[in-house]
C-alpha cells in the first residue's frame, strides 16, 4: 500500500439526472490534515458518504486506506473513524461506557480496551471522570473525548464534521492539538466545515462548487492565488460562481 490514504479519480455520483459529485480527483497522504469545504448543496456530504463506504459511486475510481470504494466498502467502514459535532457520544452512558461501546463495535477485546482507555483518560486528564455521565461533562471536554473515541481503534483516517463549531477558542486549540498529535502518529484527518477559520488549521484544503473541486491547495497558497486575506474571502469568491443554489 502506498502512503496515500485517499485516492479519487473522476469520482462521480448521480441521482437520476442530477450529478451531485462531478468527476472529482485528488489524493490525501498519510498523516495529513485535509479540509474538505463547500457551500450547502455543493456535494460535500455525498462525496464523504462515498469515502466512508456508505454510498456507491456512479463512476470513477477511489480507494480509502487502500480499499476500493466499490468492492470493499465493508472493509472501509472498519478502518475509519467518524465524529460529527452534532452527534458523537451517548449522553446517558458514562465516559468509560462510551469508550467500551465504540471500541466494542470495532471489535476490540476487553483487555485491550481497558489498557488503552486508562492511557487515554490520563492523556485527557479525565481519570476522575471515568464514571461520570457524558451529559455532565462540559462541552469542550466532550469534544475532546469524542475525538479520542473516534480514533480509539487506530483507524487510518478519521472523518470530522465541523468538529469545533461552538467551542471556545482555548478548547478549540486544545482540540486541534489532538488532531496534530494524531497526525504525527500517522492518522489522517479529513475535516468538513462551514467555518473558514477552521480551514486555516488544515495542511491542505479543497473547495467544492457545484459538485466539482474548484480549488485545492495549502491555505497560504490558496490565499495568494486568489489575492485574499483569509480563507473566507477565497471561499466567497469561489462559491459565488455556483449555479446550484442552497436547496
Amino acid at each position: 500500500m502506498s502512503d496515500k490514504v485517499i485516492t479519487a479519480e473522476g469520482l462521480t455520483k448521480k441521482f437520476g439526472d442530477f450529478t451531485a459529485v462531478d468527476q472529482i480527483s485528488f489524493e490525501v497522504s498519510k498523516g495529513e490534515i485535509f479540509g474538505f469545504l463547500g457551500a450547502n448543496g455543493a456535494g460535500k456530504t455525498t462525496a464523504m458518504r462515498m469515502f466512508c463506504g456508505l454510498s456507491l459511486p456512479t463512476a470513477g475510481k477511489a480507494t480509502v486506506a487502500g480499499f476500493d470504494v466499490f468492492s470493499q466498502n465493508e472493509k472501509i467502514k472498519k478502518t475509519i473513524g467518524y465524529m460529527s459535532q452534532k452527534f458523537s457520544l451517548y449522553d446517558d452512558l458514562t465516559v468509560y461506557e462510551n469508550i467500551q461501546f465504540y471500541a466494542g463495535i470495532y471489535g476490540m477485546g476487553k483487555k485491550q480496551i481497558r489498557d488503552k482507555a486508562d492511557f487515554i483518560l490520563r492523556e485527557l486528564e479525565l481519570v476522575a471522570e471515568r464514571n461520570t455521565l457524558v451529559s455532565n461533562l462540559p462541552l469542550g471536554w466532550k469534544q475532546k473525548l469524542a475525538f479520542s473515541v473516534a480514533i480509539f481503534h487506530d483507524p487510518s483516517i478519521v472523518f470530522l464534521d465541523e468538529p469545533t463549531g461552538g467551542v471556545d477558542p482555548i478548547t478549540r486549540r486544545e482540540f486541534w492539538n489532538l488532531i496534530y498529535k494524531a497526525g504525527d502518529a500517522g492518522i489522517t484527518t479529513f475535516v468538513t466545515t462551514h467555518y473558514m477559520d477552521e480551514a486555516e488549521y488544515c495542511n491542505r484544503v479543497s473547495i467544492m462548487v457545484d459538485g466539482r473541486i474548484e480549488a485545492l491547495d495549502t491555505p497560504t497558497q490558496m490565499k495568494a492565488t486568489y489575492g485574499a486575506d483569509s480563507m473566507n474571502d477565497v471561499f466567497l469568491q469561489l462559491a459565488r460562481k455556483a449555479k446550484r443554489s442552497d436547496n
Binding site: 450547502n40 465541523e162 462551514h194 473566507n232 471561499f235 466567497l236 442552497d246
Partner: peptide, 10 residues
Amino acid sequence: TTGVDAVSRK
C-alpha cells in the same frame, strides 16, 4: 447562522 454556509451567512 449556526450550520449555515459562508455565502448564506454573509
